[in-house]
Simulated scan of single mutants.
Amino acid sequence: MKRLLFLSAALALLFITAAWIEPTTQTKTLSASEVIAVDGDTIDHGDDRYRLVGFDAPETFRAQCEAERVLGLRAKDRLTKIIQTNGYVELEIEPKLDKYGRFLAIARAGGKQVGSILISEGLARRYSGGKRQSWCS
């Protein structure tokens, strides 16, 4: 009887502890032929949409000015080229979705973060959430 009580208490403690543990990130490698760049910081893979984190690229669909739309299309094209040139993209996926239902992920191609590449080329800027800066003068 004491053994049964001990096992029950141990199992209860295990379940309580497991509920407090933060979910971990998941890593996926996607073939370039299966990935579509929606814009400079968003990609689609099948039915899944990923918001690439750590940077912000100009909008293409809801641009606030022509300059933003043009730069956004350049960022989208460059993201596509980065992924296509490397043949794949590695995603480190966070265990939560953003407010639009997209997966949040850090993207790497050829061992480099794609956001860092786009930032270094003036096609994106660092971003960690909150109010976004305007791309229009």
Rank of each mutant, 00 (worst) to 15 (best):
residue 44 D to K: 08
residue 64 Q to S: 12
residue 82 I to T: 06
residue 59 E to G: 03
residue 106 I to T: 09
residue 23 P to Y: 12
residue 35 V to L: 11
residue 7 L to Y: 07
residue 41 D to L: 02
residue 6 F to T: 15
residue 125 R to I: 10
residue 33 S to V: 13
residue 37 A to N: 00
residue 110 G to C: 05
residue 80 T to D: 07
residue 111 G to C: 07
residue 88 Y to H: 14
residue 89 V to Y: 00
residue 45 H to T: 15
residue 42 T to Q: 03
residue 112 K to S: 10
residue 23 P to L: 15
residue 94 E to H: 12
residue 54 G to Q: 03
residue 100 Y to K: 03
residue 51 R to M: 04
residue 59 E to S: 06
residue 88 Y to T: 06
residue 73 L to C: 08
residue 8 S to L: 14
residue 83 I to M: 01
residue 91 L to K: 03
residue 54 G to F: 07
residue 126 R to F: 11
residue 102 R to M: 06
residue 24 T to H: 06
residue 73 L to E: 06
residue 15 F to W: 11
residue 4 L to C: 11
residue 100 Y to A: 07
residue 43 I to T: 06
residue 83 I to T: 07
residue 108 R to N: 05
residue 98 D to W: 00
residue 14 L to F: 09
residue 31 S to L: 12
residue 99 K to F: 07
residue 26 Q to S: 14
residue 1 M to G: 11
residue 21 I to R: 10
residue 43 I to E: 02
residue 8 S to Q: 15
residue 96 K to H: 14
residue 126 R to T: 13
residue 111 G to M: 07
residue 21 I to F: 11
residue 18 A to T: 15
residue 65 C to S: 07
residue 86 N to P: 05
residue 61 F to G: 08
residue 132 R to K: 14
residue 6 F to P: 10
residue 57 A to H: 01
residue 128 S to P: 08
residue 93 I to R: 06
residue 32 A to R: 00
residue 74 R to L: 04
residue 80 T to R: 03
residue 84 Q to I: 14
residue 93 I to M: 10
residue 35 V to N: 04
residue 85 T to D: 13
residue 42 T to M: 02
residue 12 A to C: 14
residue 60 T to M: 02
residue 51 R to L: 08
residue 87 G to D: 04
residue 123 L to K: 04
residue 79 L to Q: 06
residue 116 S to T: 05
residue 83 I to P: 01
residue 70 V to C: 05
residue 73 L to A: 05
residue 61 F to K: 05
residue 87 G to V: 08
residue 53 V to A: 05
residue 118 L to E: 04
residue 104 L to S: 04
residue 30 L to D: 05
residue 113 Q to S: 12
residue 28 K to R: 15
residue 70 V to A: 08
residue 19 A to V: 13
residue 27 T to S: 12
residue 43 I to Y: 00
residue 117 I to P: 00
residue 137 S to R: 12
residue 71 L to Y: 04
residue 101 G to F: 03
residue 46 G to L: 15
residue 39 D to L: 03
residue 104 L to F: 02
residue 80 T to M: 02
residue 55 F to M: 05
residue 56 D to Y: 01
residue 62 R to V: 02
residue 23 P to H: 13
residue 21 I to H: 08
residue 49 R to D: 04
residue 126 R to L: 14
residue 109 A to E: 04
residue 12 A to N: 14
residue 5 L to N: 05
residue 19 A to F: 13
residue 116 S to K: 01
residue 88 Y to N: 10
residue 8 S to C: 12
residue 124 A to I: 03
residue 48 D to K: 07
residue 9 A to H: 09
residue 95 P to N: 11
